[in-house]
């Protein structure tokens, strides 16, 4: 798959995790700027989902199976928005922790996606 995109998603996800972790450390809930950051990461994940589908349509196949690949792509796309929604109704530092955890989960999913696609 597009390795540059996978790396970009993972790096921005980790940056988001650090940012929201810092907000939690300062006892702050997620704010508008954090949601813009989540949107950026989500757009990158959406781009990755689309690129993945296009590559499957062009006949390229992941090493570890198509079903697993698609499941991980969808999981990667939904991880940060889902955590964002949870933090919307949790206006404390714990909402920030949730988003940070969501971003870390996304970064882990990217590593797995890289393995699943292979070379």
């Amino acid at each position: 798959m597009l390795d540059a995109l996978t790396v970009a998603v993972a790096v921005t996800a980790l940056a988001l995790a650090a940012w929201c972790g810092f907000a939690a450390y300062r006892d702050q809930p997620t704010k508008d700027w954090h949601f813009i950051g989540m949107a950026v990461v989500s757009v990158l994940a959406l781009a990755q989902l689309l690129v993945g589908i296009v590559q499957l349509a062009r006949g390229e196949r992941p090493d570890q199976g198509m079903t697993i690949f698609i499941a991980y792509l969808i999981g990667a796309f939904t991880a940060v928005p889902a955590a964002g929604f949870l933090s919307l109704s949790e206006r404390t530092r714990w909402g920030s922790v949730t988003v940070a955890a969501g971003a870390v989960v996304l970064a882990v999913l990217e590593v797995r996606l890289y393995d699943i696609w292979g070379n």
Partner: peptide, 25 residues
């Protein structure tokens, strides 16, 4: 499910999806 519980909801939700989709596939 609020306060620190919100983080637990997140992780348990993730693992529900992970374990369920994995076993189904």
């Amino acid at each position: 499910g609020s306060g620190p519980g919100r983080v637990l909801v997140w992780f348990y939700g993730v693992f529900t999806v992970a374990a369920a989709s994995r076993s189904i596939v």
